[in-house]
């Protein structure tokens, strides 16, 4: 089983869902520094969609064919649920998790 690809798909689905989340005004206000131009908010959802698209590629490295789609759906749901729980309790972590996870993934891939 390809652990690196599994971790990458989890990260990408999480980042994708975070993108959709930031696309909503309520969460944008909650999470993002007010100095950041609000025009960027409109880009969040399409960017999130793009990441979810990448996630299905990563998922295909974990499972063959149809299973990858099933796994992709499951990962999206779980990543979304994790984000939901993080938002009220640890909003900063919710925002920085893709970055932290990305560093861990890169470190693991390089070693």
């Amino acid at each position: 089983m390809n652990g690196s690809a599994l971790f990458a798909s989890l990260l990408l689905t999480y980042a994708g869902m975070l993108g959709f989340c930031l696309g909503k005004e309520r969460h944008w206000k909650q999470l993002v520094n007010p100095h950041v131009p609000t025009g960027l908010r409109r880009l969040c959802a399409p960017f999130g969609g793009l990441l979810l698209g990448l996630a299905i590629y990563a998922s295909c490295q974990v499972w063959p064919g149809g299973m990858a789609v099933v796994g992709w759906f499951g990962l999206i749901s779980l990543a979304g649920f994790a984000l939901l729980l993080l938002l009220p309790y640890a909003p900063r972590l919710a925002l920085s998790l893709p970055l932290l996870g990305g560093l861990v993934w890169a470190a693991a891939a390089l070693t």
């Binding site: 089983m1 499972w63 299973m67 099933v70 796994g71």
Partner: peptide, 22 residues
């Protein structure tokens, strides 16, 4: 097969398990 979740090894099993808990 989608219901029985015998495919995809342990990662898939855990996905089903956590989804089931939720």
């Amino acid at each position: 097969g989608l219901h029985f979740a015998q495919f995809g090894g342990y990662p898939m099993r855990w996905l089903y398990f956590i989804c089931g808990l939720i």
